[in-house]
C-alpha cells in the first residue's frame, strides 16, 4: 500500500503529463523507491494510476534494466561489468564481492543488508572499476577498498 500523499503526488505527475503513458517510467521509479523493488502490488498500483492493465505495466517494467521485478533486499550494489571497467579488472572485483557477501549475482546477502547485481556502463569510466551502492558511487576499486566500503555501508 502506498500513502495517500505519494498517491496524490503520482496522480499529479500523471495529470501534468502530455499522455498518462508519458509518466509511466516516473511512476514506476517512485513506486520502486517506496517498495525497494517493483512488487506485484506496485505494478497494480502503477496500472491504476496510469490507466493501464498490469500486463501493460509489466511490458514496460521488464524492459528497463533498473526497474526491479524481483526482490531487492537492503542496499542495492550495482557493479559495472562493461568494457572500461573490464579493462580495469572488474571481473576480480565482482568475484571479490560475491565471495565477501557470499551471494551469486542477483542474490541478497544472508544478513539482508545487500543485494548484488551486475550493471552496464555507469558513465564513470575514468574511475574504472566502479560500483554504486544505493545512490553512492565508488570508483577505482580494489579488493581492499571494496572491503572498507562494505564495512562503511553495512
Amino acid at each position: 500500500m502506498i500513502s495517500e500523499q505519494l498517491k496524490k503526488s503520482l496522480q499529479q505527475r500523471v495529470e501534468t503529463a502530455i499522455t498518462p503513458r508519458e509518466a509511466a517510467v516516473d511512476v514506476m521509479k517512485e513506486l520502486q523507491r517506496h517498495y525497494g523493488w517493483l512488487t506485484d502490488e506496485a505494478v497494480g498500483e502503477a496500472g491504476e494510476l496510469l490507466g493501464l492493465s498490469p500486463l501493460q505495466v509489466e511490458e514496460l517494467a521488464t524492459f528497463y534494466e533498473k526497474i526491479y521485478r524481483r526482490p531487492v533486499t537492503g542496499k542495492l550494489i550495482q557493479v559495472c561489468d562493461s568494457i572500461s571497467c573490464w579493462s580495469g579488472c572488474c571481473d576480480g572485483i565482482i568475484e571479490h564481492l560475491k565471495k565477501r557477501l557470499d551471494v551469486e549475482l542477483g542474490g541478497s546477502s544472508a544478513d539482508g543488508k545487500f543485494t548484488l547485481v551486475p550493471c552496464c556502463c555507469l558513465g564513470r569510466c575514468g574511475d574504472a572499476p566502479v560500483m554504486v551502492i544505493g545512490e553512492t558511487f565508488y570508483g577505482n576499486l580494489t579488493p581492499e577498498k571494496v572491503d572498507q566500503i562494505l564495512e562503511k555501508e553495512r
Binding site: 500486463l55 501493460q56 509489466e58 517494467a61 521488464t62
Partner: peptide
C-alpha cells in the same frame, strides 16, 4: 486486448500474460 503482450527485452522477450 490488454491482458496479453510482450515483456522483457533482448533474448528474454516473452509473450504472455501478467
Amino acid at each position: 486486448g490488454t491482458d496479453f503482450g510482450v515483456t522483457g527485452c533482448a533474448g528474454r522477450v516473452y509473450f504472455g500474460r501478467f
